[in-house]
Simulated scan of single mutants.
Amino acid sequence: MPIDAPVMPASHALAPRYWGAHLLMVVAVVACVLLGRWQLGVWHGHRADDAASVTREDPAALTDVLGPDAAFPTSAIGRPVTVLGRWDPAHTVYVANREHDGHTGVWAVTPVVTANGSAIPVVRGWSPEVGAAPAAPRGQAALVGLLQPSEETATTDRDTHDDVVPALDVTDLLPRAPYDLYSGYVVATDREVPGGAVASTGMSGLAAVAAEHLAGASASTALRNLLYAFQWWMFGAFAAFVWWRWVQEDVLGRRHSPDPSPGPG
């Protein structure tokens, strides 16, 4: 009859002769975790780049993408459009609580009245405070901007008589304006205006603002990198399991013995 190996106390696994195996396990698991995180980062990066690719398209005329009385289409989010018209500095507003490089300030927003008589709010840029923002431009406007949908907020504008608003909600701007407004707004860029028009972006003296809303990437974008991430984490979990079984059975002698089969009666 075979003699079972003695079961060792848990402290036996910490003997110096086993340190190499333990270190190997730690290195393997850490490597798998880091490789998985790297692949996850690549997945996020590819998806962000895919979502932002629309902002690098050739600009189209504003009226070709969004009609004055049309609802904002999802396909227009982030699209570069050419805005031509006349600045209306008298109806400039400032959107509060906007972040830029870790600082809170305001967006300077001035409408541009287009040839059809409707106006579109233009985010000219960011300023640390209203008083620090340069004066709104006058005269002709010509710029390439990124289309954005009207914002929604649960915050109520407590003072409709000042120039500060809690969000860039076109519906809230309508009572302030003497003309019809488009159903979205644009974020000004310093891109060259097609057709050779002299640019008048209103961005001078302000920090450039990035488009906050972009259409999401397709579900299949960089899917392989996401699967690789999970694969590496599974490898790490498997390595930890193999190490645990080795410690339990070979180092500590805690082998699981099957239940003896009942003998003949």
Rank of each mutant, 00 (worst) to 15 (best):
W233N: 13
L24Q: 08
E192G: 11
G265E: 13
F72M: 07
S11V: 09
G105R: 02
R176F: 03
S218Q: 10
F241G: 10
A154F: 04
A177M: 14
P68S: 06
D172Q: 09
A115C: 09
N97M: 11
L35S: 13
A90F: 09
G41D: 09
L66M: 01
A219W: 03
T110H: 07
D250S: 14
L223H: 12
Q231T: 15
F72K: 02
R47A: 08
E57G: 12
T55C: 03
P59Y: 09
A48S: 14
V30W: 12
H46N: 15
A229C: 13
Y94K: 01
W87L: 03
V109W: 04
R86W: 07
M203Y: 04
T114L: 12
G263N: 08
A197M: 04
M25L: 12
A135F: 01
Q140M: 10
Q148E: 07
D49Y: 03
P149L: 01
E99L: 15
D4M: 05
F241H: 05
A13H: 03
E152I: 00
G145N: 03
P149F: 00
S127D: 02
N116M: 05
S150F: 00
S183L: 10
V198W: 01
W244H: 14
L35W: 14
S261G: 03
R255Y: 01
V42E: 14
A13M: 08
P194V: 07
V186Y: 05
C32N: 12
T92G: 06
W107I: 04
D50Q: 15
L62A: 02
Y228P: 11
D4S: 12
M8L: 15
G139M: 14
W107Y: 13
V198G: 04
A142M: 04
A229E: 12
V113Q: 11
D259P: 06
G105I: 02
L40Y: 13
V186A: 11
Y18H: 08
M203H: 09
A60T: 07
F238Y: 05
H100A: 05
A132I: 02
Y94I: 05
F72R: 01
L24M: 13
P260H: 00
A167C: 07
W19R: 12
H22A: 02
A51F: 09
P264G: 06
D190Y: 05
M8Y: 13
G139A: 13
R124G: 09
V65F: 06
G195T: 03
A13G: 09
V122H: 12
V251G: 08
A52W: 04
H103D: 11
G20T: 11
V27A: 11
T201Q: 09
S53M: 14
V186T: 13
V30K: 06
G196V: 02
V198D: 06
D157G: 00
V109D: 04
S75N: 08
A167H: 04
P134Q: 07
A52V: 05
A90L: 13
